[in-house]
């Protein structure tokens, strides 16, 4: 790796850091715009003005917003996420187990959807114009054009209502055996896989088709290489960068996807926690959940950009 690539990568990381600060500030600012005074909400209607003033002082609510933001940031660096308004528990304790659940869901989905989408995308590009390619293209456009909850409701209709193979709701705590586990994760994972794969298939297919139309691939065809060799040996290594980029970008759709999927299947993950926190206006909890999602999202799109930079042979 030459200094050129290193510079570009470092620059991209710096941009990501600046972005992270702006995003954190936006999250903090948006959540502190809540009308009504936090202290009086916490103490209820019977609170005396002195008690409210005391609590405001204790919670540093009288400080300017920028000071509170810096204090919050400092707390984050120490791993202190604050205390939930709704049930007085530390936010970190509330999030802990939920976070693991969401990561399990995202991890299983990634393990299934990446190989699936890459296979479908690359084969569709190889057989461009065939009936198979048309079916894959039309299906993936169809999935992209409809909301995630529709994919979810349709899979419930198909697998739980008509075929009766799977339960419509998940409850992680009741998993005792492997079959239980499969039944619990099946519906959310199927839905998420559809949503993520559709994007990935389209982008992979486009990347491979673009490489296949380059002169050196035509050259390989003319010198008599077989179709498989032409794609696997000549086209694929050069399409790898765009494909990894597509994978990372598509995985960032997981962030939006889990919010819907966890809600609809009542899955005890961090997105469900956040949607519930919005309903109860539990600000510290919303801030922390939003931050985790933004971090994940930012990580994936930065990774996608860095892969794109590293895979560009002109910079090597």
């Amino acid at each position: 790796m030459t200094s050129g690539v290193l510079n570009l990568v470092l620059k991209r990381l710096a941009i990501a850091l600046v972005t992270l600060l702006i995003v954190l500030f936006a999250v903090f600012f948006a959540t502190s715009m809540l009308p009504g005074d936090t202290a009086s909400i916490l103490l209820g209607q019977a609170a005396t003005p002195e008690a409210v003033a005391g609590l405001r002082e204790a919670m540093h609510l009288n400080d300017p917003a920028i000071l509170r933001f810096l204090r919050w940031l400092l707390g984050l660096l120490h791993g202190d996420l604050g205390t939930s308004y709704a049930n007085e528990m530390p936010v970190a304790a509330l999030i802990g187990g939920r976070f693991v659940n969401t990561m399990k869901l995202a991890g299983i989905t990634t393990l299934i959807s990446v190989p699936l989408a890459l296979t479908l995308g690359i084969t569709a590009a190889m057989l461009r114009g065939s009936l198979y390619d048309r079916i894959v293209t039309v299906l993936s456009i169809g999935v992209i054009s409809v909301p995630e909850f529709m994919v979810a409701t349709l899979s419930v209709l198909l697998f739980a209502v008509y075929l009766k193979w799977l339960p419509a709701l998940s409850s992680v705590n009741e998993a005792h055996s492997l079959t239980d586990l499969v039944r619990i994760y099946a519906m959310p994972v199927i839905t998420l896989t559809f949503v993520i794969s559709a994007q990935m298939i389209r982008m992979t297919r486009a990347a491979v088709i673009e490489t296949l139309s380059t002169p050196y691939v035509e050259m390989a065809l003319l010198k008599g290489a077989s179709r498989g060799r032409m794609v696997l040996r000549h086209a694929l290594p050069n399409a790898l960068g765009p494909i990894v980029n597509a994978v990372a970008l598509s995985l960032s759709y997981l962030v939006g996807g889990v919010i819907i999927v966890e809600t609809i299947f009542n899955y005890p993950g961090i997105a469900k926690l956040m949607v519930d926190a919005v309903a109860t206006r539990d600000l510290p909890l919303i801030q922390s959940c939003a931050m985790i999602f933004c971090l994940g999202y930012l990580f994936l799109i930065t990774a996608a950009d860095i892969v794109a930079i590293m895979s560009n042979p002109r910079l090597r």
Partner: peptide, 23 residues
């Protein structure tokens, strides 16, 4: 730079936070 940063907030999440803040 600013709008790129805005773009780095997942859209559903942004909607959630705003609705939580202002109804």
């Amino acid at each position: 730079r600013f709008l790129d940063a805005m773009n780095s907030i997942p859209s559903k999440l942004f909607g959630l936070v705003v609705v939580a803040a202002v109804g």
